[in-house]
């Protein structure tokens, strides 16, 4: 444990970066998932095709490749853009935080697209008909009947997506974001205790995973409270 002396605060700040990355990517994930599922459910052929391409590509290629492409690719694009204005510019760096959150959110968003789509289609059509028969408008039916049923269906798989998301944040160390894995690498340079230090990173992630799992469990309990009393 004494190898960690002096590094605790670095790990703390590193963890904070992970948390920030997680929440930014989470919001973007939900956004991409909603747009993707809406596009998949729409009757517009072009939207269907784009959304299908999106999920096929982002679910079928390694996460690290997407991340590298985003990081190096966006830097090149930005540099090219900057050179239009100032030919002397040599290199513009795209912030790894944003390259990372975008890449991760696009990846997990492709899974969320399928989850949201499935939840939409999974809502018992009888409930929708009952709402219609009672005279609720389309919008009212959507808000008061479909959404409450949908989020209950989406919650368990979405919980898994959040776990994937938190774990994928570790990849961003590869492009130099100063999160926990990156901190560990630096600490190893001084202490030569890689086992201990990487174990600390693992423990931090296990803590995050546990928090997410417990939160999702609580939400599920709340979502299914109407079923508990029955038994």
């Amino acid at each position: 444990m004494e190898v960690l002396t002096g590094w605790w605060d670095d790990f703390f700040w590193g963890s904070l970066v992970v948390v920030k990355l997680f929440f930014v990517a989470l919001i973007l994930t939900v956004l991409f998932g909603l747009i993707g599922s809406a596009a998949k459910l729409s009757k517009n052929r072009v939207a269907n095709a784009i959304a299908n391409g999106y999920t096929i590509v982002f679910r079928g290629t390694p996460e690290i490749l997407v991340l590298l492409l985003f990081y190096f690719g966006s830097a090149i694009a930005l540099t090219a853009l900057a050179q239009v204005f100032d030919p002397d510019v040599k290199f513009v760096d795209f912030p790894p935080f944003w390259a990372g959150s975008l890449a991760i959110a696009l990846i997990i968003g492709s899974y969320a697209t399928e989850t949201f789509r499935g939840a939409f289609l999974g809502v018992d059509s009888g409930q929708i008909e009952a709402a219609r028969a009672l005279g609720l408008s389309n919008l009212q039916t959507f808000i008061y009947v479909r959404i409450p049923a949908m989020w209950r269906l989406a919650l368990p798989p979405f919980g898994n997506h959040m776990l994937s998301l938190i774990k994928d944040t570790a990849l961003v160390a590869i492009i130099g974001l100063e999160e926990t894995l990156f901190v560990a690498e630096q600490a190893i340079g001084y202490t030569a205790k890689p086992f201990t230090l990487y174990l600390v990173v693992g423990a931090i992630y296990l803590g995050f995973s546990t928090i997410i799992t417990l939160t999702v469990m609580l939400c599920e309990k709340y979502a299914n409270r109407h079923l508990e009393i029955a038994k």
Partner: peptide, 17 residues
């Protein structure tokens, strides 16, 4: 629909309410 009520074979109560 305001004037016509309907009762279904499978009840279709809203389970979350």
């Amino acid at each position: 629909r305001r004037e016509v009520g309907m009762v279904f074979q499978s009840f279709n109560l809203f389970p979350h309410l």
